[in-house]
Simulated assay, not measured.
Amino acid sequence: MTVPRLYLSVNGCLCPRSEPDPAWGDVAKASINIEYGDGHASTRDVRWAPRLITALDSLLMQYGVELVWLTSWNEFDATRQLLVPELHGLAGGRMLDVTTPPKRPGRTDGETGLWKSQRIEEDQNVPAPFIWIDDADVELHGQKVLNATLETPSLLIPPHSAVGITVDDIALMRIWLEQLP
Protein backbone atom coordinates (compact mmCIF):
# COMPACT_ATOMS: atom_id res chain seq x y z
CA MET A 1 0.00 0.00 0.00
CA THR A 2 1.10 3.55 -0.71
CA VAL A 3 1.88 5.67 2.33
CA PRO A 4 -1.13 7.86 3.18
CA ARG A 5 -0.62 11.61 3.37
CA LEU A 6 -1.97 14.25 5.72
CA TYR A 7 -2.24 17.66 4.04
CA LEU A 8 -2.35 20.00 7.02
CA SER A 9 -3.04 23.71 7.41
CA VAL A 10 -2.04 25.75 10.47
CA ASN A 11 -4.43 28.69 10.87
CA GLY A 12 -7.88 27.62 12.00
CA CYS A 13 -6.76 23.98 12.23
CA LEU A 14 -3.74 23.44 14.50
CA CYS A 15 -3.93 27.00 15.74
CA PRO A 16 -7.58 28.04 15.97
CA ARG A 17 -8.72 31.63 15.73
CA SER A 18 -10.15 31.48 19.26
CA GLU A 19 -9.53 28.69 21.80
CA PRO A 20 -8.91 25.02 20.89
CA ASP A 21 -11.60 22.40 21.39
CA PRO A 22 -12.06 22.35 25.20
CA ALA A 23 -11.91 18.52 25.11
CA TRP A 24 -8.14 18.84 24.55
CA GLY A 25 -7.58 20.49 27.92
CA ASP A 26 -4.62 22.80 28.40
CA VAL A 27 -3.83 25.52 25.86
CA ALA A 28 -0.35 26.72 24.92
CA LYS A 29 0.42 30.12 23.40
CA ALA A 30 3.30 31.78 21.60
CA SER A 31 4.12 34.91 19.65
CA ILE A 32 6.09 34.04 16.55
CA ASN A 33 8.03 36.69 14.66
CA ILE A 34 8.46 36.06 10.93
CA GLU A 35 11.21 38.06 9.21
CA TYR A 36 10.48 38.84 5.56
CA GLY A 37 13.69 40.75 4.89
CA ASP A 38 14.28 44.40 4.07
CA GLY A 39 13.18 45.29 7.62
CA HIS A 40 9.72 43.77 7.17
CA ALA A 41 8.39 41.33 9.76
CA SER A 42 5.15 40.22 11.30
CA THR A 43 4.22 38.68 14.61
CA ARG A 44 1.65 35.91 14.74
CA ASP A 45 0.05 35.17 18.08
CA VAL A 46 -0.94 31.51 18.09
CA ARG A 47 -2.56 29.10 20.50
CA TRP A 48 -2.90 25.35 20.31
CA ALA A 49 -3.70 22.29 22.39
CA PRO A 50 -0.57 20.28 23.27
CA ARG A 51 -2.71 17.12 23.51
CA LEU A 52 -3.80 17.69 19.88
CA ILE A 53 -0.16 17.79 18.78
CA THR A 54 0.51 14.55 20.71
CA ALA A 55 -2.57 12.92 19.16
CA LEU A 56 -1.49 13.91 15.64
CA ASP A 57 2.07 12.68 16.22
CA SER A 58 0.68 9.37 17.49
CA LEU A 59 -1.64 9.05 14.49
CA LEU A 60 1.19 9.76 12.03
CA MET A 61 3.45 7.20 13.69
CA GLN A 62 0.85 4.47 14.22
CA TYR A 63 -0.43 4.52 10.63
CA GLY A 64 2.79 5.55 8.87
CA VAL A 65 1.19 8.75 7.56
CA GLU A 66 3.35 11.29 5.73
CA LEU A 67 2.86 14.82 7.06
CA VAL A 68 2.58 17.37 4.25
CA TRP A 69 2.38 21.01 5.34
CA LEU A 70 -0.12 22.89 3.16
CA THR A 71 -0.25 26.34 4.71
CA SER A 72 0.70 29.95 4.14
CA TRP A 73 3.15 29.35 7.01
CA ASN A 74 5.36 27.50 4.49
CA GLU A 75 6.62 30.83 3.21
CA PHE A 76 10.15 31.33 4.54
CA ASP A 77 9.86 27.81 6.03
CA ALA A 78 8.15 29.38 9.05
CA THR A 79 6.21 26.17 9.71
CA ARG A 80 9.20 23.96 10.39
CA GLN A 81 11.67 26.61 11.53
CA LEU A 82 9.49 28.73 13.84
CA LEU A 83 6.17 27.04 14.64
CA VAL A 84 7.12 23.36 15.05
CA PRO A 85 9.73 24.07 17.77
CA GLU A 86 7.00 25.87 19.76
CA LEU A 87 4.56 22.99 19.25
CA HIS A 88 7.06 20.40 20.58
CA GLY A 89 5.79 17.94 17.98
CA LEU A 90 4.97 17.41 14.32
CA ALA A 91 8.65 17.69 13.45
CA GLY A 92 9.68 17.39 9.85
CA GLY A 93 7.04 16.94 7.26
CA ARG A 94 7.24 17.89 3.66
CA MET A 95 6.16 21.36 2.55
CA LEU A 96 4.17 22.11 -0.55
CA ASP A 97 5.21 25.32 -2.26
CA VAL A 98 3.27 28.44 -1.31
CA THR A 99 5.43 30.96 -3.14
CA THR A 100 4.75 29.88 -6.73
CA PRO A 101 1.55 31.48 -8.02
CA PRO A 102 -1.13 29.11 -9.29
CA LYS A 103 -0.85 28.15 -12.95
CA ARG A 104 -4.28 29.44 -13.93
CA PRO A 105 -4.09 32.02 -16.73
CA GLY A 106 -5.92 35.26 -16.03
CA ARG A 107 -6.69 34.39 -12.39
CA THR A 108 -5.20 35.60 -9.17
CA ASP A 109 -5.42 33.57 -6.01
CA GLY A 110 -4.61 35.77 -3.04
CA GLU A 111 -5.78 34.01 0.09
CA THR A 112 -8.63 32.09 -1.55
CA GLY A 113 -6.85 28.77 -1.16
CA LEU A 114 -7.03 27.84 -4.82
CA TRP A 115 -3.27 27.33 -4.69
CA LYS A 116 -3.81 24.66 -2.02
CA SER A 117 -6.13 22.57 -4.18
CA GLN A 118 -3.72 22.94 -7.07
CA ARG A 119 -0.80 21.77 -4.94
CA ILE A 120 -2.75 18.69 -3.81
CA GLU A 121 -3.65 17.86 -7.40
CA GLU A 122 0.01 18.21 -8.42
CA ASP A 123 1.17 16.13 -5.45
CA GLN A 124 -1.38 13.47 -6.30
CA ASN A 125 0.34 12.92 -9.66
CA VAL A 126 1.85 10.16 -7.56
CA PRO A 127 -1.42 8.95 -6.02
CA ALA A 128 -1.65 8.12 -2.33
CA PRO A 129 -4.61 7.99 0.04
CA PHE A 130 -4.91 11.35 1.75
CA ILE A 131 -6.54 13.41 4.44
CA TRP A 132 -6.89 17.15 3.84
CA ILE A 133 -7.58 19.35 6.87
CA ASP A 134 -8.29 23.01 6.21
CA ASP A 135 -10.80 25.26 7.94
CA ALA A 136 -11.81 27.23 4.82
CA ASP A 137 -10.39 25.69 1.68
CA VAL A 138 -11.84 22.19 2.08
CA GLU A 139 -15.30 23.71 1.77
CA LEU A 140 -14.28 26.10 -1.01
CA HIS A 141 -12.20 23.72 -3.15
CA GLY A 142 -12.73 20.23 -1.72
CA GLN A 143 -15.05 19.06 -4.47
CA LYS A 144 -12.53 20.15 -7.10
CA VAL A 145 -9.86 18.05 -5.40
CA LEU A 146 -12.20 15.08 -5.06
CA ASN A 147 -13.08 15.29 -8.76
CA ALA A 148 -9.39 15.39 -9.70
CA THR A 149 -8.55 12.41 -7.46
CA LEU A 150 -11.60 10.19 -7.98
CA GLU A 151 -9.70 6.89 -7.77
CA THR A 152 -7.80 7.85 -4.62
CA PRO A 153 -9.22 7.22 -1.14
CA SER A 154 -9.55 10.55 0.64
CA LEU A 155 -10.98 12.18 3.73
CA LEU A 156 -11.59 15.93 3.81
CA ILE A 157 -12.05 17.62 7.18
CA PRO A 158 -13.10 21.28 7.48
CA PRO A 159 -12.66 22.14 11.16
CA HIS A 160 -14.45 25.18 12.54
CA SER A 161 -11.77 27.89 12.53
CA ALA A 162 -12.63 29.08 16.04
CA VAL A 163 -11.75 25.74 17.68
CA GLY A 164 -9.58 23.95 15.10
CA ILE A 165 -9.14 20.20 14.93
CA THR A 166 -11.34 18.44 17.47
CA VAL A 167 -11.11 15.18 19.37
CA ASP A 168 -13.87 13.90 17.08
CA ASP A 169 -11.81 14.82 13.99
CA ILE A 170 -8.92 12.69 15.28
CA ALA A 171 -11.31 9.79 15.93
CA LEU A 172 -12.68 10.13 12.38
CA MET A 173 -9.16 10.04 10.96
CA ARG A 174 -8.33 6.89 12.95
CA ILE A 175 -11.47 5.12 11.68
CA TRP A 176 -10.70 6.15 8.10
CA LEU A 177 -7.05 5.04 8.34
CA GLU A 178 -8.12 1.69 9.84
CA GLN A 179 -10.28 1.05 6.79
CA LEU A 180 -7.51 1.57 4.24
CA PRO A 181 -6.42 -1.64 2.53
Rank of each mutant, 00 (worst) to 15 (best):
C13P: 00
C15A: 06
E86T: 12
I131Y: 12
L87G: 02
D77R: 14
P127C: 07
G37P: 06
T149S: 13
T54D: 12
V65L: 15
T2G: 01
F130L: 13
A55Q: 11
H141P: 10
N33H: 14
L82F: 12
I157C: 03
I120R: 06
Y36C: 07
C15V: 06
I165S: 02
T108C: 07
G64F: 08
N33G: 03
W73M: 10
G64W: 01
I165A: 02
V65G: 12
D123M: 08
V65Y: 02
T152Y: 09
P105E: 15
L114I: 12
K103R: 14
H141I: 06
P22W: 00
L14M: 04
C15P: 03
G110S: 03
P101Q: 15
S31M: 01
S58F: 07
R17Q: 02
D123P: 11
I53D: 10
T149Q: 11
S31D: 08
S18R: 06
P16N: 00
P16R: 01
V27D: 00
R104A: 15
A28W: 04
A91K: 14
V167G: 00
P20S: 06
I165N: 00
Y36S: 08
A49T: 06
L140I: 14
T112L: 07
S9L: 03
Y63K: 09
V145A: 13
E139V: 07
Q143D: 15
Q118P: 10
N33L: 14
L14Y: 04
L155A: 04
P4Y: 02
E121C: 14
G37Q: 11
A136H: 09
L59N: 09
D38P: 02
D21E: 04
V46P: 03
D134H: 05
P20L: 01
E178D: 08
W48M: 12
Y7C: 07
A23G: 06
Q124G: 13
V126E: 15
P159A: 03
G106Q: 08
T79H: 05
G25Q: 05
V27K: 02
L90S: 13
L52A: 13
H40A: 15
R51L: 10
L14R: 05
L155P: 06
G164P: 02
E121N: 12
L14V: 06
G142L: 13
L56E: 11
K144Q: 13
E122F: 11
K29T: 14
W176P: 00
M1A: 08
R51S: 15
L90A: 13
T100H: 15
P129I: 13
Y7S: 11
I53G: 06
I157N: 04
L56V: 15
S161Q: 04
A136K: 07
H160I: 01
T152Q: 03
A91H: 12
G113P: 03
T100E: 09
Q62N: 05
H88I: 12
I133K: 07
D169S: 02
L60K: 08
E122K: 15
E19R: 09
S161V: 01
A171C: 01
G92R: 09
A136Y: 12
L14Q: 08
L172F: 00
E86L: 14
I157Y: 02
V163I: 05
V126T: 15
D38K: 14
P16Q: 01
R80A: 11
T166G: 05
